[in-house]
């Protein structure tokens, strides 16, 4: 992971054009429900909500993968756990059965989201502490294997639906605003996403972020100057898992359904694709990657049921010929050299 061509972990220098672009994108995103109504495309809001939620997950993975070089192939686990927290709390809220002997069920989003973040962070801490004993390719395999183990756990969890998953019949509620309305929920997700990206920006620009970049470039060197790298890696892994859990909790609300599919290893793969597609180690890249991948999937799926037979080779070609994901592709199209 000591690729010198990658961008440094520091926040990119502000320039007027990129600030304007981001501002324009934000305005467009904010009025998207109105645009959808204008163009008579009601499905657009739901699609956009999915993209915004997955962007949170991809950006969280990117914090570990892009900034710190921890190639985690198991982030679907934290995402799925976040989703299951919402599902399980809702089930207990509806049935009134106690959870751990306490009346803990709830459908208040202000409670479910923080609990989802905490629980996924807790699991990420336990499994991260084990996984981080290894590095390189073993780390990839181990995160994948542990995620698979958690997947099997939920498949076997018959009390919460097992294979079939859990239906969250009605979306969690928020005080004052009606989160059950599609457009409102989209704005809630967008707001959370913006807050999460702002937090990531702070993290990356901080001293902590500088250490992460150092670990990515040369862990040995960081250790040599007296940094206890294991603690930093664990911290970033946990933060990253919390973000994925947040995304999972939002997705459970959006889809009103959680199932072991959320933890499937292909979901982990998709998160990685989003990160690489948009550009690892860039702040907004994963959001762009999530948008492109989901739109591409939707388009291909409308075109043929066997869309993966097209997406797979596209992915291979992208990795082989455009190293920097989309930005590399743009460079290639402009006739510049890649790499």
């Amino acid at each position: 992971m000591d690729d010198p061509s990658k961008k440094s972990g520091f926040a990119p220098r502000k320039n007027v054009r990129s600030v304007l672009l981001v501002a324009l994108a934000l305005v467009l995103l904010a009025v998207l429900p109105q645009l959808a109504e204008l163009f008579d495309q009601p499905a657009m809001v739901s699609l956009a909500t999915r993209i915004v939620i997955l962007a949170i997950a991809a950006a969280s993975l990117n914090l570990a993968l892009g900034y710190c070089g921890l190639v985690s192939f198991g982030h679907a686990a934290w995402y799925g756990i976040g989703g299951y927290v919402v599902g399980i709390l809702y089930k207990h809220y509806v049935s009134g059965d106690p959870l751990f002997g306490l009346p803990l069920g709830t459908d208040q989003m202000l409670i479910t989201l923080p609990v989802a973040i905490l629980v996924s962070g807790l699991f990420a801490a336990v499994f991260g502490a084990l996984s981080l004993r290894t590095s390189g390719v073993q780390f990839i395999m181990i995160t994948l294997a542990f995620a698979q183990m958690i997947f099997f756990f939920f498949v076997a969890l018959k009390a919460y639906g097992g294979d079939d998953g859990l239906i969250v019949r009605r979306r969690n509620i928020l005080p004052l605003i009606d989160a059950r309305d599609g457009a409102t929920f989209y704005w809630v997700c967008l707001f959370i996403a913006i807050a999460w990206f702002a937090l990531l920006r702070r993290i990356v620009g901080s001293r902590f972020g500088a250490v992460l970049a150092g670990v990515r470039q040369s862990e040995r060197r960081m250790a040599a100057i007296g940094v206890s790298t294991y603690r930093y890696k664990l911290a970033v892994f946990v933060i990253s898992g919390m973000g994925a859990g947040l995304a999972g909790a939002l997705m459970a609300n959006h889809a009103r359904f959680v199932s072991p599919d959320m933890l499937h290893w292909t979901q982990s793969g998709e998160f990685m694709i989003m990160v690489i597609l948009g550009g690892a180690g860039t702040l907004l890249g994963p959001a762009a990657g999530a948008a492109v991948l989901i739109l591409l999937e939707t388009q291909l799926a409308a075109f043929t049921e066997h869309w993966q037979v097209i997406l797979g080779p596209l992915l291979v070609l992208m990795i082989l010929f455009t190293r920097g994901g989309l930005s590399g592709l743009l460079k290639l199209l402009r006739g510049g050299s890649n790499g």
């Binding site: 992971m1 993968l65 190639v71 192939f73 990839i140 793969g269 990685m272 694709i273 690489i276 690892a280 997406l311 797979g312 080779p313 596209l314 992915l315 291979v316 990795i319 082989l320 190293r323």
Partner: peptide
């Protein structure tokens, strides 16, 4: 990372 993604494709 590239190897994982390409072979995932």
């Amino acid at each position: 990372l590239d190897q994982v993604l390409a072979t995932f494709g």
